[in-house]
Computed example of a mutant assay.
Amino acid sequence: MTIKVVRGNPTPEELAAALAVVRARTVTASEEPPATEAPRDAWSDPSRIAAHRMPQPGPVSWSRTYWPS
């Protein structure tokens, strides 16, 4: 790991403090377990809608699509 000071002139104490914070953050970040996604509720699962094939329309299905006005 390389740290480069872009602006200013930090004292050795300030640089050591900043480096200690960066190292502590990297250690704690590597120790944390990765976040897991919450399990989906079956009600909101879109695959349940497409789980069964829809019946294909028959030759007289046009007669059942009448919408009275």
Rank of each mutant, 00 (worst) to 15 (best):
T2Y: 01
S47V: 03
V60K: 14
K4R: 04
E14Y: 01
A17R: 14
G8Y: 02
I3S: 06
A16R: 09
P12T: 09
I49A: 11
A16S: 14
A24V: 08
G58W: 00
V60D: 15
S47I: 00
R7S: 07
W43D: 01
P59E: 15
A38N: 03
E31Y: 09
R40Y: 04
P34V: 06
P68W: 05
R23I: 10
V60E: 13
S69G: 11
T36C: 11
G8D: 07
D45T: 10
A24Y: 03
E32D: 00
A18S: 06
T65Y: 08
R40E: 07
T65A: 12
W43I: 06
V6R: 12
W43P: 00
L19P: 01
A18V: 01
G58E: 01
R64G: 03
A42T: 09
S44P: 00
N9G: 04
W67F: 04
A16D: 05
D41W: 00
A24Q: 14
P10R: 01
V5D: 06
T26I: 10
G58Q: 02
T36R: 13
R53C: 03
R25N: 05
M54N: 12
T11V: 09
H52M: 06
N9L: 07
P55Q: 05
A51C: 02
T65C: 05
T26L: 14
S61I: 04
K4E: 01
L19F: 05
A42V: 13
T11L: 13
Y66K: 11
R64A: 08
R7N: 03
P46C: 15
P57Q: 08
D45K: 06
V6E: 00
S30I: 03
A35L: 15
T65G: 09
D45S: 11
R48G: 13
I49Q: 10
I49C: 13
A50W: 03
V60M: 14
P57V: 04
T11H: 11
E32I: 04
A20W: 02
R23A: 13
A35T: 15
A35H: 15
R48Q: 13
A16C: 08
M1Q: 09
R25T: 02
V22D: 12
A51I: 05
A38F: 01
T65Q: 10
P39F: 09
M1D: 07
V22W: 06
D41S: 12
A29T: 10
P12I: 06
R64M: 10
P59M: 13
E31H: 12
P59W: 04
W62R: 14
I49E: 08
E37W: 00
R7P: 00
L19Q: 10
R48F: 12
L19C: 09
M54F: 14
D41Y: 01
I3H: 10
I49P: 00
P33K: 15
V6H: 05
I49M: 13
I49H: 06
N9W: 02
Q56A: 12
T36H: 09
E14C: 04
R25W: 03
V6W: 02
W62N: 11
V21F: 14
P10Q: 11
A18M: 08
S44G: 08
P57W: 02
R53P: 00
A20F: 02
I49S: 08
